[in-house]
Design a protein around this nucleic acid. Structure first.
Lengths: 340, 340
DNA sequence: AATATATGTGAGATCGATCTCACACGGTTT
DNA sequence: AAACCGTGTGAGATCGATCTCACATATATT
């Protein structure tokens, strides 16, 4: 059967009025006679008229859709944020398009271009790189509302929602130092990623402040997947003089480290202490439970969506940077190291 | 500055040709002089012409976007599926709109309507209810390509991708019976959800086949969240004669059960045995590791996307039902129960 | 009575890309 | 010379909703 959906023209014809009048009746603007309006509404009802958002969007230049480009929806951190944004968007009668950049700049650029040509005006992006940013810069020049989350980009004036990565990392390292550790390992992902760099910086500053000289042999880099993190952990702990404690920069890497330790027969917290950045559901199910630096995940998506909708509703104000504090959740994965 | 993006008209003017010719040159159809075509391409390049997908979509009646309505992206099961679909969609130059029904029929219906009015032709849906299905039925009547995943809907002829829920549940229960358990609890979510019903049915059949009379006191129902599952588990195990083993119908409920057991001081597998439906990353991090019925998650999204793109490319064929087998992954959460 | 004001309505333009049609030109065929 | 073809191009219609403008009426004001 496949009958086409009813158009405004159909409704107008059915109600014996012009398209203009039908539009007025349905969108209640301008003058329409009461009786006419009712007739139009009845016709719309009868024909199941729903309007074509595409045509509306073409007319007024924008589509009520928010583009959301994240690293990967499978990361629970991003999944939570995406979910929160979607709920808020739904409340504003927007839909949400999700794209994964998979941490590749090229993909981020092409996704953005493809969404822009859809007349989407409103993006929430977790940018892959903070150097190569011509595409974001162009968005801003074109006045497209944009909110960056989790990461910022050098030289770009733009709303953003971040957490205090450096401070969080510092807290973790200070805590480890206070527990007597001096050879503290770092498991991090690509240094082109903003969060990773900030966390590295917190790690280094805390060490120096604690009178410890940073040592490159204590740092292992890998992609942010459980599998890569396992290898990187094994490399780190196969050294002659391995770390006595490990700090991991995100939850996937924390999981990798846990698996690596199990494979190597290294026990937590007896043989090695562990602190991870980003709390995750698994952290309280292990024995011992894992001490982590927690981010206020539930607030990030909300804040980002709020900023975006402010921009979208036409408010122009100086761009706002929100930075959330982190909290160190002490659980059982760190032990005091006897001096010496 | 905010200059509008270049339109075809701009390109045509710049190249000193009509819009029709410009279109022909850029989309390579019809006759265009070589030199003219080059001039148009140069103009497009110079002006950064990218085309307006909205206008294109309005013209040809469909938008290259796939609508994906799932229970909740935060469930790793759905997150994985969504991710896989997005990757395939990207390969076909489609984007992905994600909506969460949050297991509410009303939300599912309104999301679907809103996406349909966007001229989106192509949906992947995990339907909330299998009774109330007028909206899905309408889609099919209108010949909109639709693939159901994870759940089917009564009386609807439609491509679908499922797993063998009943068989999976039966395997779990048979295994528990073979380990000597006779009071086997079931922790399930809303029976309006298809998967839940099928798993319940597998549970019941396996019991009967094992010579055990199903007993309602062994069944506890709650929403599928960790928090609700905790309460439901506590209710179940506060009875005078509690189960000796528990089967949980999804990973969130498995997590809830684990937390409840910990809170109640019940140890696995000493005091109670546990088998969960759906493998999840946490299952191998606990001590003991959790025995689960695993679904081939990585294949579901792929299969669904493949079916959808077949339909989208105009192939008409009888609708296909794909049902994947499950596997029982025996780990350490079940102990043999001494007879008696 | 003449003008102003409020109320309703329709014709037509617009958004941007695409497609059909008509028309041009040079060359070939009858 | 007439009819025909292959090639190249532009004018205008189309998709569906909305908005501006012009034009009706009817009522109120001078």
């Amino acid at each position: 059967m496949a009958q086409k959906p009813a158009t405004l023209k159909d409704v107008a014809a059915f109600a014996n009025v012009s398209r203009a009048t039908a539009a007025r009746a349905l969108n209640s603007y301008g003058y329409v006679g009461d009786e006419t309006a009712q007739r139009v509404r009845d016709a719309a009802e009868k024909l199941g008229y729903r309007g074509n958002r595409l045509a509306q969007a073409l007319r007024n230049g924008q589509l009520p859709i928010i583009g959301c480009i994240l690293g990967d929806i499978q990361n629970p951190f991003f999944a939570r944020i995406a979910h929160d944004i979607e709920v808020l968007a739904r409340g504003n009668r927007y839909n949400l398009i999700i794209g994964s950049s998979e941490e590749q700049l090229e993909q981020e650029v092409s996704l953005l271009a493809s969404l822009q040509s859809l007349s989407i005006r409103g993006f929430i992006v977790a940018p892959t790189s903070d150097e190569n940013n011509f595409h974001l810069r162009r968005l801003i020049e074109e006045n497209v509302p944009l909110v960056l989350i989790d990461r910022v980009v050098q030289g770009i004036e733009c709303d953003s929602v971040l957490v205090d990565n450096e401070g969080g990392a510092r807290k973790a390292i200070e805590y480890l130092i206070s527990m007597g550790h001096r050879r503290i390992g770092l498991l991090q992902d690509d240094t082109r990623i903003f969060t990773s760099r900030e966390r590295l910086s917190g790690y280094q500053h805390a060490l120096v402040a604690g009178g410890i000289t940073p040592d490159d042999r204590m740092i292992s880099v890998s992609q942010s997947t459980v599998e890569h993190a396992i290898d990187a952990t094994i490399r780190l702990f196969s050294q002659k003089v391995p770390p006595t404690a490990l700090f991991t920069v995100d939850s996937l890497m924390t999981q990798g480290a846990l698996l690596a330790f199990r494979a190597m027969g290294i026990s937590i917290p007896h043989d090695v202490s562990l602190v991870g950045f980003d709390d995750f559901n698994l952290a309280t199910f292990t024995d011992p439970q894992i001490t982590v630096v927690a981010q206020p995940v539930s607030e990030i998506g909300l804040a980002a969506a709020r900023l975006l909708f402010e921009k979208l509703s036409g408010q122009s104000r100086p761009s706002e940077q929100i930075r959330f504090e982190t909290r160190l959740l002490v659980r059982g994965s760190v032990s005091r190291r006897p001096e010496g």
